[in-house]
Amino acid sequence: MFRSVLGKTLGFVGYTVQYGCIAHCAFEYIGEFVVCSGPSMEPTIVNHDIVFSERMSRQQCKIQKGDIIIAKSPFDPNMNICKRVTGLEGDKVCTSSPSDLFKAHTYVPKGHVWLEGDNLRNSSDSRSYGPIPYALIRGRVCLKLWPLHSFGSLSESPTRRIIKARSDSD
């Protein structure tokens, strides 16, 4: 009797550990579900929207201008931020607000990206804390899951401030 209970208990623990390892690897290397909060990405992503953030693009260095990413906050490592990539290393970006009389520009340093929220008037982003290291990026948002009426891939920036570089074939 004792052996039977012990065997079943150890079997259950073994399966739990195996499935836990599989789930950990899936969330660490494939992607994760993220509940977004705050107004900085409105109207693209609003408070309490649920998105799927895939990790493969980050691992293969395939983040591009216009992508929405999840990254660790440069000020609080326990908090994530959701922003749009508006500049890559070597890009010249406008660091002043649209209402500023004189426009200031800076170059994004190597190994960094420039992030901005779609809601420029209500977003704390690279305009206030500067470019962030590529290593802080956790994943690229590829799908909005909730609410169901807006299920699908995400739209381009409503501010239309992103200028993609022309390729040599253009």
Results as ranks from 00 to 15, higher is better:
residue 129 Y to W: 13
residue 167 S to H: 06
residue 94 C to F: 02
residue 111 G to R: 02
residue 107 Y to K: 12
residue 61 C to E: 15
residue 156 E to M: 06
residue 74 P to I: 06
residue 19 Y to H: 12
residue 3 R to P: 06
residue 41 M to D: 10
residue 65 K to D: 03
residue 158 P to S: 01
residue 59 Q to N: 13
residue 74 P to G: 06
residue 139 G to L: 09
residue 119 N to H: 13
residue 64 Q to T: 05
residue 78 N to T: 15
residue 46 V to E: 07
residue 72 K to T: 15
residue 45 I to Y: 01
residue 147 P to N: 03
residue 137 I to T: 01
residue 50 I to P: 00
residue 166 R to D: 09
residue 131 P to L: 04
residue 78 N to I: 03
residue 10 L to E: 04
residue 56 M to L: 14
residue 145 L to Y: 01
residue 52 F to H: 05
residue 48 H to V: 05
residue 105 H to W: 15
residue 71 A to V: 00
residue 55 R to Y: 05
residue 29 Y to N: 13
residue 110 K to N: 03
residue 109 P to L: 10
residue 119 N to I: 03
residue 151 F to H: 02
residue 107 Y to P: 00
residue 52 F to Y: 15
residue 127 R to G: 09
residue 49 D to T: 06
residue 110 K to F: 00
residue 162 I to V: 15
residue 130 G to M: 04
residue 113 V to P: 01
residue 21 C to M: 15
residue 29 Y to D: 08
residue 70 I to A: 10
residue 152 G to Y: 08
residue 75 F to D: 15
residue 37 S to V: 08
residue 125 D to M: 10
residue 29 Y to V: 08
residue 47 N to C: 09
residue 153 S to C: 10
residue 56 M to N: 05
residue 71 A to L: 02
residue 103 K to Q: 13
residue 164 K to T: 06
residue 132 I to A: 04
residue 112 H to L: 00
residue 33 F to C: 07
